[in-house]
Simulated assay, not measured.
Amino acid sequence: MSGRGEKAKREKGEAGFDVFARYYDLDYQGVDEDVGFYLGFAQRCGSPILEPACGTGRVLVPLGQAGFEVTGLDVSPVMLDMAGRKLGRTLKKRVRLVEADMREFDLSERFRMAFLASDSFMHADDLEDQARTLRSVHRHLMEGGLLLVDLANPQVPSWLDQGDELRLHWLREDPRTGRSVSKLVACQMDWARQLQEVTFFYDEQGEDGTLRRTVAPFRLRYLFRYEMELLLQMTGYALEGVYGSYDLAPFNAESERMIFVAERRA
Rank of each mutant, 00 (worst) to 15 (best):
R22W: 02
E69R: 12
L220F: 13
E227Q: 13
Q130D: 03
R10N: 06
G84F: 08
D174A: 07
L50T: 03
A152Q: 10
L231C: 06
F111M: 04
E104K: 15
S76G: 11
V95K: 03
Q205I: 15
L160Q: 14
L248K: 05
R112F: 07
T214C: 13
M113D: 02
Y202D: 11
V75S: 13
G163Y: 05
T199I: 14
L211W: 15
L184M: 11
G64S: 07
A15N: 10
D129E: 11
Q155T: 13
V59K: 04
R172T: 09
T235V: 00
G145H: 01
L195K: 13
R213S: 10
K86D: 15
K86N: 12
F121L: 15
D106F: 13
C45F: 09
S180Q: 14
T133G: 10
P77G: 06
M82I: 13
W191K: 10
V31S: 08
L220K: 15
C187W: 14
E51Y: 04
R22A: 14
M228L: 05
E256R: 12
E14N: 05
R10C: 06
G67I: 07
L26G: 07
R132D: 13
V95F: 00
F260M: 00
T214G: 14
A42H: 06
F37R: 03
E229R: 03
E109G: 05
R4C: 08
D161W: 12
A42G: 06
M228C: 06
A262M: 00
Y202Q: 09
Q162C: 10
E14H: 02
G206C: 12
